[in-house]
């Protein structure tokens, strides 16, 4: 049995990850803003066979609440085997271009608050000399594109932070996993036109659990995004800047 903390537990991907661990009989600590939604997910996990489910309703974009996370988890479960950071927003790029405040708020939610949590988590895991820290970044962080570079900046910075953390924590036996999903059909993307590359959140969830089981460092989900992004990263800048991606 593993002890698993999921931040942003009400997101579509995180819900499916929680189901998979619950079915295995693991112990869950679920964090999100909305109490009622957390209860629905906790009830579901308990029905599926989770050993125990704890919930904690806070706004994760508020950095001042982060210390309490690990205190609570420590109280409730003793130690942590897996931390999954799954919250985030896909802000409106156009709105970000019009407003500094909006841009910075995007960066706060998707990058700075995550770095705040990761900093605390790193010390917590380093002390226990074991476990996995997994965070959902994005293929959008692999190269800046006009359509969503504010979101891309946040995820790109997060990817680099995770890289450094992995380098540091490998000495302590702690795994750091960077998850880079492609297009996922979730409420966050409900207004997008869906094509062939889109997958359901349960597919991403299965990929996440598998990557954590195998102690991988970086997981593109589904796998083919590794190759798509390989191509995209290698387009020369003088051509790339003229494309409308």
């Amino acid at each position: 049995m593993s002890n698993i903390m999921i931040l942003g537990a009400t997101s579509a991907i995180a819900q499916h990850v929680a189901r998979l661990y619950a079915t295995r009989g693991d112990q869950l600590f679920l964090v999100a803003r909305d109490k009622a939604k957390l209860k629905a997910i906790a009830d579901d996990a308990t029905s599926r066979g989770a050993a125990a489910v704890y919930t904690y309703a806070i706004d994760l974009s508020d950095n001042t609440r982060h210390t309490s996370l690990f205190q609570r988890a420590d109280q409730d479960m003793g130690h942590l085997d897996i931390l999954l950071i799954a919250y985030g927003t896909l802000g409106d790029q156009k709105a970000c271009e019009m407003s500094v405040t909006t841009s910075l708020a995007e960066l706060q939610t998707n990058c700075l608050s995550v770095i705040s949590i990761l900093t605390l988590a790193a010390n917590f895991f380093e002390q226990h000399q074991q476990g996995t820290i997994a965070a959902i970044s994005s293929v959008a962080g692999d190269r800046g594109r006009q359509s969503n570079y504010v979101y891309g900046t946040a995820k790109g910075a997060l990817t680099i932070f995770l890289q450094g953390l992995r380098n540091r924590l490998s000495k302590a036996g702690v795994t750091v996993l960077t998850i880079k999903p492609g297009f996922v059909d979730t409420p966050m993307t409900q207004d997008f036109k869906k094509g062939l590359l889109w997958v359901k959140p349960e597919v991403i969830a299965r990929g996440i659990v598998k990557a954590i089981d195998r102690r991988k460092d970086v997981a593109y989900l589904p796998f083919f995004w590794r190759y798509i992004m390989l191509v995209i990263r290698h387009i020369p800048e003088f051509i790339f800047k003229k494309l409308s991606l």
């Binding site: 629905a40 997910i41 009830d43 579901d44 308990t46 029905s47 599926r48």
Partner: peptide, 16 residues
């Protein structure tokens, strides 16, 4: 598509 309560002793299942 969430389960709400499963009682494996009585065989009673509540779900969305």
């Amino acid at each position: 598509d969430r389960f709400i309560h499963f009682d494996p002793e009585q065989g009673l299942l509540r779900c969305e």
